[in-house]
Design a protein around this nucleic acid. Structure first.
Lengths: 256, 256
DNA sequence: CGGATATTTGAAATCTCTCAACGACAGTGG
DNA sequence: CCACTGTCGTTGAGAGATTTCAAATATCCG
């Protein structure tokens, strides 16, 4: 593994507090792999042998039932995934596949758990990381159960706007059908939802979306820090300080 | 606090591994409180000063947006709640209120975090506990996004049947409107969903539900361990062994 | 018993999905 | 260069699911 990559993940809150020796031990058995787009890294129900860390590209987490599938999250670097399954040595509840050419670090789950048991600082960091993921999911369920399709889209657009720097024109980071699945609707319905937001100053040109009248759009969307993940997971803020940072000034990741 | 109560929570996986002295320190500042039904213990957005442990009764976790509210989970003893917020020292994302007269142990969050930092075994136990909660939420989102109302109800009934011992007649543990909110539908729709399940041998008499033809009902419901929490959180099974225990033989809790 | 709350039922409105067709576009191979 | 092909996105129409509003029971509790 390249030293530069190691340094990148070393800065993650998950690893930043642990002793150098333990970090080296943890990463010595790790693989840094390149995958083309559309590669399924793991299927629902599979035993989980690695903790995955997305370094480059993007990864979709999805769930399936009865020949239907839905996108649960779309990850951007740098994000860990299937951490909870690794902690519990359980089977995956979600499939994972690359949406584009991606570079992924794979840390053997066995060693991860061993070091979690040996290094108290790391164990606390794991607890905090999983807690952050948990809270992301709580927001996701509330978003899904309390808002209709157009409201979810409007809030998605406002969240993206914040993450992309606040300019009026944003770029959709994924295919629209993937976005539709993430938002819990069909591709056709997403298209209609975009059309319905035209009344609120949303102009769509392919992957470019222009928000011309943010005030009425916000009046419709009613964004709320208790439902919207304006900061991506791992943005680094926890604790009381996190209360004051919404909406955050700088968020580059497109994670869901 | 009564010794009997302390012994009960001592047996939870979350606390069972920690040193006696630390456990005593953790619980020395705790309150055991009785609340009548319908008491709101905390509102969304509130700072979280305690970890709550439900000892008796039942508690509803709910989310609100734009004058609508939804039930995210219904807890039964013995369950912890708002653990993730305590770990991160963050504000609550869910409101909590008692559905009936309940006894709740409140552990000061400050001391909880301090001991989590001092006791490596406890830190790992927290990581595992939060991971289990996380996986419960993943199932919940998949259930919500992939199934329609009647399918969610059918699976709920089958899950309850397992948890209540497998007999043909089960008792709904909550009011129907609460159940409707948990299942992500209106009370009227739940009533219609019950009516539609009559074709599959579901007979409703007030809170009693008789499942006369489980085979067709299962053919409709398609229960799946990747979506259904047949075991309540904290049932005690983790690791590879958990794969073999579905559906589990004994599940007494009614947690969602 | 009386009053409040829950539940059920009906009817209409709204939202969402499915199916089908169409146009735009990129890549392929002649 | 140009059909051919496949994917993606959009649009329309109809079906289905869900919600809303209203009214009619049913149930619970003092």
């Amino acid at each position: 593994m390249r030293t530069a990559d190691l340094e990148r993940i070393r800065t993650l809150q998950l690893f930043s507090g642990m002793a150098e020796a333990r970090f080296n031990e943890l990463t010595s058995g790790a693989y840094l792999q390149n995958f083309p787009g559309g590669t399924t890294l793991m299927y629902e129900g599979d035993p989980v042998d690695f903790l995955y860390i997305l370094m480059e590209g993007s990864v979709e987490l999805q769930g399936t039932w009865n020949d239907k599938e839905t996108t649960l999250a779309i990850l951007r670097p740098i994000s860990t995934f299937i951490l909870a399954a690794v902690v519990l040595d359980a089977n995956a509840l979600m499939s994972a596949r690359t949406l584009e050419k991606s570079q992924i670090l794979m840390i053997p789950a066995e060693g991860f758990r061993r070091i979690m048991n040996e290094d108290p600082i790391f164990a606390v960091a794991v607890a905090r990381e999983v807690s952050g993921c948990y809270r992301g999911l709580v927001r996701s369920i509330k978003n899904q159960k309390l808002r209709n399709g157009a409201e979810r889209l409007a809030n998605y657009l406002l969240t993206q706007q914040v993450r992309q720097g606040g300019a009026a024109i944003i770029t959709l980071p994924h295919e629209k059908r993937t976005l539709a699945s993430l938002l819990g609707m069909t591709a056709e319905n997403l298209s209609r939802a975009f059309a319905s937001l035209a009344d609120y100053g949303v102009e769509v040109n392919g992957p470019e979306v222009k928000i011309t009248r943010p005030v009425p759009l916000k009046r419709l969307a009613k964004p709320n820090p208790l439902l919207d993940n304006h900061a991506p997971p791992g943005a680094g803020l926890t604790g009381k300080a996190a209360k004051e940072m919404w909406p955050p000034a700088n968020c580059l990741s497109g994670a869901a």
